[in-house]
Amino acid sequence: MTTIADIDKMISRVALGDRSAFSDLYDATSAKLFGVALRVLNNTASAEDVLQETYMKIWRYADRYASNGMSPMTWLITIARNTAIDRLRATKQTDDIADVEDRMAASGPTPEQSAIAGSEAARIVGCLDELPDDRRAAVRGAYLEGDSYADLAAKFDVPLNTMRTWLRRSLIALRECMTQ
């Protein structure tokens, strides 16, 4: 069973140029990171490219991991999410949804991957629950789908400035809730 400590160790070894550790890291984490790319991009081919680019960055920047203090999965997911959002902004094409859903149904996570996915208690979820429904949905959309203010304004059919105000208020409320 792959644990968070194992992932941590793998990244440290990857930072030293250990190719077999890189292979192990890919096997243990690629399903989660592919899930991130698929959710943001909604397009299988783009998500595959982004996954490739993500692991190239991981190989290149693994030596920066030790000093940044993040949990290893958070670090990996942040790279995957940002790479996917960069791609989304560059192309802005989100067809192919049925294709993604087919694939999701076809291939579930392995037990190892499920173990990694189930992380610590989710405090932000409790704080999100205190927000009005539409604001909670907007924050979640921004995080999970990489929506910009403009995307969210269109999705919720409100003016851009209104969306900006909603979101900023929600973020202040979240921050207060989480530091209590």
């Binding site: 399903a31 899930g35 949990s71 942040t78 999701m104 208690a121 405090r123 932000i124 979640r140 999970l144």
Partner: peptide, 10 residues
Amino acid sequence: ADLADEYMPV
């Protein structure tokens, strides 16, 4: 990062 639990592994 806690929200990342909702990213479904594929």
